[in-house]
Amino acid sequence: MQKLTIAGKEFSSRLFLGTGKFSSNELMEKSIVASGCEMVTVAMKRIDLDNKEDDMLKHIIHPNIQLLPNTSGARDAKEAIFAAQMGREAFGTNWLKLEIHPDPRHLLPDPIETLKATEALVKDGFIVLPYCQADPVLCKHLEEAGAATVMPLAAPIGTNKGLRTEDFLRLIIEQSNVPVVVDAGLGAPSHAASAMELGADAVLVNTAIAVAGDPVAMATAFKGAVEAGRIAYEAGLGAVSFEAVASSPLTAFLD
């Protein structure tokens, strides 16, 4: 399996993990280890002085793991830029998952604000991985604005619906000069394998693993699926035919 390079950094794993929704930090850590992933997303919130919560960072800080702070909660470019700058100080990295979703009902990304914020953040030295609609036109604009990847959605966040945007993802993958990370909505290892077979460079999974009956086992399953899908893509999938094509010789031997 070829290595993935984003902004000059090499990744052996093409599975990125979100850290939300796990029932405990211990389970999250075990799932990260089982997944073999080298990139995990993290979020921020205003500190609650009365609440002594467990420090989540100690469960994910590892030399092989790139932290990817997100801007979740930002409703426009201005809020996202502020969140990005806070994230850079909090996590000590200029890598950023840019996400701007103004409406909590569907959590769909705002394309105009995402493009504006990408332009500004790239100029400010960030490595920007924007979460975006599976829109080939928008993805091309984001690439031209200096995004390190594009991260089009498969389906709305947390829905586990799979590759609802497959036709558009195909176009994005075909045209893209930056890695394409399929983010959001992948609900089963088979969805992830399909995305990789299409030629996606990586997938980002959170809910499907975090809320599984056994998250550690599900992380293992996703790891296998992502590898299988990628190896299949690199091997070159056979052509689809509408008529049967015999796999055994049809020369008559009973005549």
Binding site: G18, T19, G20, K21, F22, N25, M28, T41, V42, A43, M44, K45, R46, I47, D55, M56, L57, N70, S72, M86, E89, A90, F91, G92, I157, G158, L204, N206, T207
Partner: peptide, 24 residues
């Protein structure tokens, strides 16, 4: 971060303080 030590708080300052949490 490198300016935290030198940054003195003034009367009425509005401070936002965030921390790392889990998220996707």
């Amino acid at each position: 971060r490198q300016d935290w030590e030198a940054t003195k708080l003034e009367e009425g300052a509005q401070i936002t303080m965030i921390k790392a949490v889990c998220g996707g």
